[in-house]
Amino acid sequence: MRNFAYQRAGNVTQAYTLHGNDNSADFIAGGTNLIDMVKLDIMRPERLVDVNLLPLTEIEELDDGRLKIGALVTNTDLAYDERVTTRYPVLSEALLAGASTQLRNVATTAGNVMQRTRCPYFRNPSRPCNKREPGSGCGALDGINRNHAVLGGSDKCIAVHPSDMCVGMQALGATITVEGPDGPREIPFEEYHLLPGDTPEREHDLRDGELITHVTLDAPIEGAKSHYLKLRDRMSFEFALASCAAVVALDGDTIREARIALGGIATKPWRSHEAEAALKGKPATEATFQQAAEAALAGAVPHRDAAFKIPLAKQAIVRALSTVTR
């Protein structure tokens, strides 16, 4: 860890003003991800702006049925909030499938949206990584890549977005509100995280100096049931090898509407419109679920150690859908 200056902001304006629009500063809230990376010497902020005192800790039900979540709401508070457990249980399940109690107690909503990859080549400053050091190459592409992406990768980067919470939000539909010197703006959740393409160092649509203030969930789909299924080597405290958030509304035995989001296998929290299209209007049968799973993984690339993730992700989709529609 290199030394850095520490500043504490009392309100949103002060926070982005203190941060400024250069790369020398980072915001810190729970710090569970950032401090880790500073210690690994892969992030080297000269200044940290502490945002923990900002008034962004509330969860608020809006008149249009949406749920507005403050950036500083902890994973634990969000997972156990009654409005979440009753109206958005898939989000609660996703949150509780992630990390450990201790981490969830301090990790925040915005921090989790900003969570960075566990790619070991990214996390070691002596390894090549186009995300950390553009142009240095990708260590994972031909390296040890069992934990890497089979969807959304490029020849520059196949690092997985590690969040469980984001997969839940991706399935539910949400809007991210950010605020900076140019005022507040809203970004659809699905457009917030970027595919690596030729610029894996650009991970999200957040401009220099901007700060996430809220995540607002869409109103729940009427009559929908949901499930988050996370598959991994051990039973807890591990990042997903494949996960699926499924939200399904039935008319009788016919699927009226479905949302499918995938984790652990893609370079961003992955919404599968292909799977959703394969489900909509179809009977809720195992054969339909299989077709949806095939559709979701149709473009998947089997990298060296990660080929098994393709059938595994299909299994996650089929089992999650079976569980929801049971």
Binding site: P120, R127, G143, I144, R234, E238
Partner: peptide, 24 residues
């Protein structure tokens, strides 16, 4: 795990080197 190309350890941390947790 060691990178087969250069012999460097890959999962040398407590998150990716897996040992059983309570749930296991």
């Amino acid at each position: 795990e060691y990178d087969h190309r250069n012999g460097r350890p890959v999962n040398n941390n407590y998150a990716e080197y897996l040992v059983p947790v309570h749930a296991d």
